[in-house]
């Protein structure tokens, strides 16, 4: 009997023991009554939720529902018109992110947070090598030893299923799926605790998308990352997230455990959204 595949060697797998769950844990992020107005137009309005360590939250809704505005407000890429965002720093203290000093803010943006853009070109430097794209985030946090940086970068390329020998190639020479995986490596190399993702699988072929989802799911579980994922694709939300927020016209329509929202939607809009999914 051939038992090779069960014990002797372990094929790469998204199957990793999830981070132990501790219900007495405190939230990592608190969003309180965040609103953003563009003149008199509502971007997002009165949004509040908590996010716990290791939890993946999906924000879903049609284009124009305010999900990207909300993501940009929480991640400080945009300043909300009103409201508060609190984040638990590594020393355990809860800090208001818009009142952090420059040094602390830099630490969040460069180390403790990651941001994965829909278009990899927005999150990568297209004309420097793959290795430099990953190594740059390490240098930003004070790593100086060239050999170590290159070695870490190569390890991360491997983690996101890019061959080590592509380390000196520029992302321009990569396919869409590879670019997106490189962007993920660049974000995760500093060991962040919270990653924001804006349509991370948007614009990819389904087979490439499946591979990326599998990879993301494994990495998120393995590293115990918390993540906020904006997507209009309910299938992506189902596979990736624990909890879901449904948005429409800048407001939260429904929120809850992902499979509960998808299988037993309560709000009229959520029912409409889910009944509109194409079946394969």
């Amino acid at each position: 009997m051939n038992k090779a595949h069960t014990s002797d060697h372990l094929p790469k797998s998204s199957l990793v023991p999830p981070r132990p769950m501790d219900l007495s844990e405190k939230p990592l992020l608190q969003v309180r009554s965040v609103s953003k107005y563009y003149g008199r137009r509502v971007g997002c309005e009165d949004i509040s939720f908590d996010l716990w360590p290791g939890e993946v939250l999906a924000i879903v809704g049609e284009s124009g529902s305010g999900k990207t505005t909300l993501l940009d407000c929480i991640s400080t890429r945009m300043t909300p018109t009103s409201g508060m965002v609190n984040y638990r720093m590594r020393d355990g203290t809860m800090r208001e992110v818009f009142r952090l000093g420059e040094a602390e803010k830099r630490f969040l943006m460069r180390t403790d947070w990651g941001f994965v853009h829909q278009n990899p070109a927005d999150g990568l430097r297209m004309t420097v090598s793959a290795g430099a794209n990953v190594g740059e985030r390490l240098m930003a946090i004070g790593k100086r030893h060239y050999g170590d940086i290159r070695e870490t970068a190569a390890d991360w390329l491997e983690q996101v299923e890019i061959a080590r020998d592509r380390i000196d190639d520029q992302p321009r020479a990569f396919s869409g799926g590879m670019r997106q995986r490189l962007q993920i490596a660049r974000n995760l190399v500093t060991g962040p605790r919270l990653v924001f993702m804006d349509e991370p699988t948007g614009g990819l072929d389904v087979s490439v998308q499946a591979r990326l989802l599998d990879l993301l799911r494994g990495l998120v579980a393995e590293l115990g990352l918390a993540a906020i994922v904006v997507t209009h694709d309910l299938a992506v939300a189902r596979l990736l997230s624990h909890r879901m927020v449904v948005m429409k016209e800048g407001r939260v329509i429904e929120t809850g455990l992902t499979d509960r929202v998808l299988d037993d939607p309560q709000a009229p809009y959520t029912q409409l959204l889910i009944s509109s999914i194409l079946q394969v």
Binding site: L10, L15, V16
Partner: peptide
């Protein structure tokens, strides 16, 4: 999950309870 082999699909909940991958 797409792309995940049957063996891992079957092992998943066990890994979720803390069993090692090889054993699961």
């Amino acid at each position: 999950m797409p792309r995940v082999p049957a063996l891992d699909v079957a092992a998943e909940a066990l890994v979720g309870q803390g069993e090692g991958l090889a054993e699961a």
